[in-house]
């Protein structure tokens, strides 16, 4: 992606040139540096003022918030995403919905509407999407937020599996260094500019 993104007449990303190889890329930077904007631009959720977004169509974007539809259970949300993407039987998404819920420790509460789950449980349910969907590019915004140590370990293993399967994984984080040892690249964004 080579992009300048302007929001409210203010350039939030300035000619960011981001080359994403297969594997884990960590996007680091202080609050307000443009990490979320970069991920949203990569996901196709923001118009790019100058430059272009050249990324696969099958993006899995997990933002700050869990992005689960209220009124549905965790199981129903996951089943929707799995069916939508047609990931059934794919080697890159080896788990069924029940197994994914079990892995992320929320199977017991899987049939409660997501608005009745705690913030941590919702975050786990959202991250369980990584187990049931195939994608060429996974974009995760502060995925370790609200996770306990056990869940953080599951996330590290899941991201390693995705990277091993050939997906490009971009993780935005302002503080955590959990992935530095397995990342193929660590970039830093400051005031909308990329420092490698």
């Amino acid at each position: 992606m080579h992009a300048t993104v302007v929001l409210d007449e203010r350039p939030v990303l300035r000619a960011v040139d981001l080359d994403l190889p297969p594997g884990i890329t960590v996007l680091r930077g202080p609050n307000g540096s443009g990490k979320t904007t970069a991920l949203r631009a990569l996901a196709g959720l923001l118009p790019i003022a100058r430059g272009e977004r050249d990324a696969p169509d099958d993006v899995l974007y997990l933002g700050h918030r869990p992005q689960l539809l209220h009124g549905l259970t965790a199981r129903e949300n996951l089943a929707f995403f799995r069916a939508f993407r047609g990931s059934v039987g794919s080697p890159a998404a080896p788990l069924g919905v029940d197994d994914a819920l079990e892995l992320w420790g929320i199977r017991r509460d899987a049939d409660r509407p997501v608005e009745h789950l705690s913030a941590g449980q919702r975050r786990r349910a959202a991250l369980a999407r990584l187990e049931v969907e195939t994608c060429a590019l996974a974009l995760l915004d502060e995925p370790f937020a609200e996770l306990d140590d056990d869940a953080a370990a599951v996330l590290r293993a899941t991201l390693a599996r995705l990277a091993h399967a050939g997906s490009a994984v971009v993780v935005a984080s302002h503080g955590h260094h959990d992935l530095d040892d397995v990342a193929v690249r660590v970039c830093t964004l400051r005031e909308g500019k990329l420092e490698t």
Partner: peptide, 25 residues
């Protein structure tokens, strides 16, 4: 500046457009 190259094959959904609409409905 070079454009991005994602070093993985482009894959798209196996689900047809009408089926996706029904899933959302």
């Amino acid at each position: 500046m070079s454009d991005v190259t994602i070093g993985v094959a482009r894959r798209s959904s196996n689900t047809s457009g009408p089926k996706r609409a029904w899933l959302v409905a």
